[in-house]
C-alpha cells in the first residue's frame, strides 16, 4: 500500500424516473462492484418491519395456524421509520413480548363470518397499534383518501359461515438476509448501458428490405428505420438485451461489423421496484446509508485485523 494512487471515484447519479414504488436512475463513473453492492444491500440489508410473531387464539378457518402466520409475515408493512427502530435482539428496554415501542409493533386481527357469503379476511382487518406501521395497501388507501370497494387489501384467508379468526401479531424490524419478508425490494436490477455504433458506410450498401430484416432481427425494438432518410437509427439503446441477434444477423448477411455494440463498463442503469414498505427513492437512500455504515465498520476496525489480511495476501 505504498503507492498512494487514488482509486477514489465520484459516482454520479442521474434520476430518470421516480415514483413511490418505482425508480429508474443512472449510475455513472463507477464499476460493477459498486453497482452490485448497492443492489445487494437494497435486496438484503435495508431494514423493514414485518410480522414475526403470531399468537393465534381462535382459528377455525381452513388454513392452519402456521399457514396463516406465514401469510401474515409476507404482508409488507410501511417501514419508513425502520432505520431508527431497534432490532429486537439488541433492544434492552424490553423482553421481546411486543410491548416495546422501540422494537416492535403490535397488531390485532379479529374476524368472524356470520353470513352465507364468504368473508375475505384481508390486510385491512389487521389493526395496528402504531399508525406509522400499517399494511402498505391500507396506507395507500388512506393516502389516496378514496375507498375502492374492489381493493379490499391483501387476502389472508377466506372464511365461511361460522368460521372465526382471532390473533395477535407482533411486527419486528429485520433485514432481507434473514427472511425474504423483510426485503423491501420487489425488483432491484441493473444493466450496463449499451453503446451502439452503426457503420453507416456499410449500412448504405444494404437494400431497404435488408435493412428492414436487420431491424426486425432484434427481439426488442432497438433499431428503427427513419421514414424520411430510410436510415437505420438507434431508437432505444436500452431496450437492447445483449442478445447479439443483430450482430449475428449482420454476419449472416455477410456484413460483419455492420453494427457494433459494446457495454459501457462504467455506467449502469438501475431499476428499483419497491414492495411498498419503503418508498423506492428512500430505499436507495437507505441502501446507501447501510452501505456507508458497513464501510465505516470496516474502516473503524482494528488495524491488527488488516495486518492479518495483508499477511494473508502475501504481505506488502
Amino acid at each position: 500500500m505504498e503507492d498512494t494512487v487514488s482509486y477514489q471515484r465520484l459516482p454520479k447519479v442521474r434520476i430518470r424516473e421516480m415514483r413511490d414504488d418505482f425508480m429508474k436512475f443512472e449510475l455513472r463513473e463507477t464499476d460493477a462492484s459498486m453497482a452490485n453492492a448497492l443492489r445487494r444491500v437494497m435486496i438484503a440489508e435495508v431494514p423493514t418491519v414485518a410480522i414475526d410473531l403470531v399468537e393465534i387464539s381462535v382459528n377455525s378457518s381452513v388454513l392452519n395456524d402456521e399457514f396463516i402466520a406465514h401469510r401474515l409475515g409476507l404482508i409488507p408493512l410501511t417501514s419508513d421509520n425502520a432505520m431508527e427502530m431497534r432490532f429486537s435482539r439488541d433492544c434492552d428496554s424490553c423482553d421481546g413480548d411486543g410491548q416495546c415501542e422501540y422494537c416492535s409493533v403490535e397488531f390485532h386481527l379479529s374476524a368472524k363470518c356470520e353470513s352465507d357469503q364468504t368473508l375475505d379476511v384481508t390486510s385491512a382487518d389487521l389493526h395496528s397499534v402504531d399508525h406509522r406501521v400499517v399494511p402498505v395497501d391500507v396506507q395507500k388507501a388512506f393516502d389516496s383518501d378514496g375507498y375502492d370497494p374492489n381493493q379490499r387489501g391483501i387476502l389472508i384467508v377466506k372464511l365461511r359461515r361460522g368460521q372465526e379468526l382471532k390473533l395477535r401479531a407482533i411486527a419486528r424490524k429485520g433485514i432481507g438476509k434473514d427472511h425474504a419478508k423483510w426485503s423491501p425490494a420487489a425488483t432491484v436490477t441493473f444493466m450496463y448501458e449499451p453503446q451502439i455504433h452503426i457503420n453507416e458506410e456499410l449500412m448504405e450498401t444494404l437494400t431497404f428490405e435488408e435493412k428492414e430484416s436487420l431491424v426486425d432481427s432484434s427481439p426488442t425494438k432497438v433499431f428503427s428505420i427513419d421514414p424520411d432518410t430510410q436510415q437505420v437509427v438507434v431508437m432505444d439503446a436500452e431496450a437492447y438485451t445483449y442478445d447479439e441477434e443483430v450482430i449475428k444477423k449482420a454476419e449472416s448477411m455477410g456484413k460483419p461489423g455492420l453494427v457494433e455494440i459494446y457495454a459501457k463498463e462504467d455506467s449502469f442503469i438501475f431499476t428499483v421496484e419497491s414492495t411498498g414498505a419503503i418508498k423506492a427513492p428512500q430505499l436507495v437512500i437507505n441502501a446507501i446509508k447501510v452501505l456507508q455504515q458497513k464501510l465505516d465498520a470496516v474502516r473503524l476496525q482494528d488495524d491488527n485485523n488488516f495486518n492479518e489480511l495483508d499477511a494473508h495476501l502475501g504481505g506488502s
Partner: peptide, 23 residues
C-alpha cells in the same frame, strides 16, 4: 411468442452474476 415479448427465440437470457455484478 417469446420474440414478441422481447425474449430470445431460444429461451436464453442474458444474466448478471449476483455475486460480482458482471455479466
Amino acid at each position: 411468442a417469446l420474440i414478441q415479448k422481447g425474449f430470445s427465440y431460444s429461451g436464453k437470457d442474458f444474466l448478471y452474476s449476483g455475486i460480482l455484478g458482471t455479466p
